[in-house]
Amino acid sequence: MASEAQGAETGGLEFHPMDQFNIESLFGGPIAWYTPTNAALWMGLAILAVIGLMVLTTTKRSVVPSRGQSVAELAYGFVYKMVEDVSGKDGVVYFPYIMTLFMFIVCANFLGLIPMSFTTTSHFAVTVVLAMAVFLTVTVLGFVKNGTKFLGLFWVSSAPLALRPILAIIEVISYFVRPVSHSIRLAGNVMAGHAVIKVFAGFAAIAVVSPIAIAGIVAMYALEILVSFIQAYVFTILTCVYLKDALHPSH
């Protein structure tokens, strides 16, 4: 990239840890809402990854599964059990939606670990849309399923009466903070890890510290593999928890 070339020319240490997050048009030109960008490309690759993982591996429908089919079944069972355990039996209806979120996040996170790739989940635009989709769906669902009883979520009936209004304010604030924390947690974790790897990579230009820098990259990469899965898991399980609140608002 242009800025990296400039860094090489001047010979000094140039850190551009955030350049990897730049949105660029694939074919040049300005970025309009419909322009195919690197974000669009890597989202498309995430779709292909989902197809490869969940569809192509299960074409044989074998009773004794192959390795690939085991992975697909494992993913299915993992999310299904999560929805069932956290949201309850009546939450299972929403399993395909939650599975969609999980599969997209986990595929995008892991694709983002490929060197030179673009991590779509590192962008707030993506995670905010995901989190707001969950937040709005859950809120609407809560009112549709429970009517005004959904407001009981904010009225802690087990607390002393005098404390309840204060708790209600806290509950309301925490409720509206949910989509913020939900989205920033995911994008923040992914972005920070990738940026730190890039910073280590910048230090690798100095011969003396380059072994340490490369060791640091390896360690961060291992951590990022963990983070990729855990953040997808956390996002999904929080979605299940919010769904449970919508279905069963009583404390």
């Binding site: 949105i23 970025i31 309009a32 809402w33 419909y34 322009t35 960008t37 974000a39 669009a40 989202m43 498309g44 995430a46 779709i47 989902v50 197809i51 969940m54 569809v55 395909p96 939606y97 599975m99 969609t100 979120l101 599969m103 997209f104 779509t120 962008h123 635009a125 993506v126 849309v129 995901l130 989709a133």
Partner: peptide, 18 residues
């Protein structure tokens, strides 16, 4: 706008596939 547009398409496609 660009990212949201592609994200919505991606999510719909993944949802339909799944």
């Amino acid at each position: 706008g660009n990212q949201i547009f592609w994200l919505v398409i991606t999510l719909v496609v993944i949802y339909l596939i799944l």
